[in-house]
Design a protein around this nucleic acid. Sequence first.
DNA 1: CCAAGACCTGAATGAATATTCAGTTTAGAC
DNA 2: GTCTAAACTGAATATTCATTCAGGTCTTGG
Lengths: 193, 193
Amino acid sequence: MRTRSGQKEQNIWQAAVREFARHGYHQAKISRIAEGAGVATGSVYLYFKNKKQLLEKILADVWQNLAQEMEALVTRKDLNAVEKLEGMVDLVIDMFTDNPSLAIVVVNEHSQTRIAQPYYERFLALGRQVLEEGIATGLLNPHLQVDVTSQFIFGGVRHLIHLWAQSPRQYPLNKIRREVKLLLKRGILTEVQ
Amino acid sequence: MRTRSGQKEQNIWQAAVREFARHGYHQAKISRIAEGAGVATGSVYLYFKNKKQLLEKILADVWQNLAQEMEALVTRKDLNAVEKLEGMVDLVIDMFTDNPSLAIVVVNEHSQTRIAQPYYERFLALGRQVLEEGIATGLLNPHLQVDVTSQFIFGGVRHLIHLWAQSPRQYPLNKIRREVKLLLKRGILTEVQ
DNA sequence: CCAAGACCTGAATGAATATTCAGTTTAGAC
DNA sequence: GTCTAAACTGAATATTCATTCAGGTCTTGG
């Protein structure tokens, strides 16, 4: 008999992220992914059912990781809602810091998969939950529409991460991080004294 | 001789928007676009060089229209910077009100075209310009990073429009419109008295 | 009317590449 | 050392359309 090295699946996963990021899902070639992973074309199909499932696996992994970390953040008792929101922004930004390719794939291919993504839903629900907690504790404006607000923030952050992935110099993550937090809390108007 | 009806190009343009919106650029079929426009497959190539150029034309048309209307808005003397920003949000939302398919195409396929999009650049530049005007007149927070801020707003609005296009009931445009303006101006914190 | 020439058609072509699978290699059991 | 079964290979297959183009069809000027 023979056992899988355990390394190949991860190599393919990573090579696929690079390939999807560089060429986009539809222009990505299985043969190039295999080459990038140092395996034969057919071996990709030993670990993933097909090209589509490979993309879905990547996205699902990302949302699962994020949802898991957010879950821990949201249940902390030592942070108020605003601090949790800032922590969420940090979590998302940190996730991509070491992997611009992954950022590009998540941002660009997110709408490719029409299937329900449970972990992505969980991620969004946790965002709404923190906003509601903030309203309940009087920290946040009670007139906020939590669903629209959370999606607006998500869309803004997603777009900025995409820009960073394409031009890290022009949109450094720390600048993005700081600015998003400021905008969130205070909006654009001159500070009221 | 024979002259073009002038109707066919527009029919193809509209059919392509529907097809791109429903199936995404890469799954879209020229044959279905032709069918939707009531012409033969080959006729698409009388009006557009190829599939890619058809998408580019659609996106360019959208950004050209928006940039043009924004240009008029930005040069108005009777509005201050905040009113202009609100007007810009209205412009973007109004553009898609009658055409959810177009909204989906613009949002989903925006990153498909790697070519420079002059009108899109113009659109972004006008946004930055209004923010700078607002800072100069003391209306807006002088610590704003105008490039990051304008992109954040753009990303948030883009995402919300996408959600509306997919579930108009859950994310009605008027709710989006109101919420975005509030968030922009005041952020999420409880109003300071 | 009747060329003339542009418009229009849609089946055929060709290219691209996801997926398969018959054959080869190798790790581990005995 | 030998055998076995799973892992692995990569050329061949099969499919899917974008694009072409040879042949028809209209519209208009004279």
